[in-house]
């Protein structure tokens, strides 16, 4: 147990480092029009027009993030092994702490895929930030929540492997969408302030951020649908009915309905951009409530935390 907790701790610090680097990257990118703002001694004459510093910081940020992800993977793997050794089941998402560590893994994994594909690093300052917060919130949980306890009988089923992981993956996608929503608002603010600040230049244009946020939700939406349905199938085996309106399943349906409204809203005019960004942040808050609030505030069949 100690071993995996140590590794989760390491993950936390690596993510913190990665986040700082991404933020550094955003601010190190210089506005294209103001070469004279270059740090003293910086060889502007050598033809770096986008801040050589920035490029290097960006590369380091990506590498540190990759290390963080590897650490996170190893930590989850170690926890899985500890579970298997002592308890006979291995799903490393069997309690709130592990679930959050897994969500943070998924956010970072998703982000790296995204970076590989779109090569827009400044997104890291927001999305890696959310992954870091998930990991940080997990490590703030009291110690007794962090250890691996045996599963209560209702959870002791192979369904936990797939139902829980799929649902958590959808949360990660929505978290990315929320991060992009925040990024949109930041960029918009920078734009409104007028002069081309560093921040403004570092971020991709609004339309791109908006579109990426939408894509993240379009990944989360089918995953959540699948997760809910897997939950229903499990309930059909464990509880004697596929749907019993227990608070957790009801809340995941609520979250799904909220995003359902979002994807349809986007087809009507005026629901892109700012409104969509705010809505995505609101959606993320609802996801957080479904993930945390329900476990700690509402009672029901899912209250295993």
């Amino acid at each position: 147990m100690i071993r995996s907790l140590f590794l989760f701790d390491m993950t936390f610090w690596l993510y913190l480092a990665a986040l700082s680097l991404y933020i550094g990257y955003v601010f190190a990118r210089r506005p294209a029009a103001s070469f004279e703002l270059a740090p003293a001694g910086h060889p502007t004459s050598m033809g770096f027009n986008d801040g050589a510093w920035a490029t290097q910081i960006g590369q380091v940020a990506t590498i540190v993030t990759i290390f963080g992800l590897i650490m996170n993977t190893v930590a989850l793997g170690t926890r899985a092994y500890e579970r298997l050794e002592h308890l006979g089941t291995f799903a490393p998402w069997s309690n709130q702490f592990e679930a959050m560590a897994f969500v943070s893994w998924a956010i970072i994994f998703g982000y790296l895929l995204f970076e590989a594909r779109y090569k827009i690093k400044s997104v890291g300052a927001f999305v890696v930030g959310i992954g870091f917060i998930a990991m940080g919130a997990a490590s703030l949980l009291p110690y007794r929540y962090q250890t691996a306890e045996p599963l209560v009988p209702a959870l002791n089923s192979y369904w936990i492997y797939i139902h829980v992981s799929v649902t958590l993956l959808s949360y990660a996608a929505f978290a990315m969408a929320g991060g992009l929503g925040i990024m949109y608002l930041v960029k918009e603010r920078a734009e409104r302030l007028g002069k081309p600040s560093r921040l403004y230049n570092a971020l991709p244009d609004l339309e791109t951020i908006d579109e990426l946020g939408y894509k993240a939700i379009m990944v989360g939406f089918p995953l959540l649908a699948f997760g809910i349905i897997l939950g229903a199938m499990w309930a059909n085996y464990a509880w004697g009915g596929y749907w019993s309106w227990d608070p957790k399943e009801t809340w995941s349906l609520i979250v799904w309905l909220i995003y359902g409204a979002y994807i349809h809203a986007r087809m009507t005019r005026g629901w892109e951009g700012r409104r969509a960004a705010i809505y995505a942040i609101f959606g993320l808050l609802m996801v957080v409530f479904c993930f945390w609030g329900v476990n700690f505030l509402l009672s029901g069949l899912h209250a295993y935390a």
């Binding site: 809340w251 609520i254 309905l257 409204a261």
Partner: peptide, 15 residues
């Protein structure tokens, strides 16, 4: 959109 939102809001009652 109206139905999605109203269903989401009313579904919270029972939780």
């Amino acid at each position: 959109m109206f139905l999605f939102i109203v269903l989401a809001i009313t579904a919270t009652i029972g939780t």
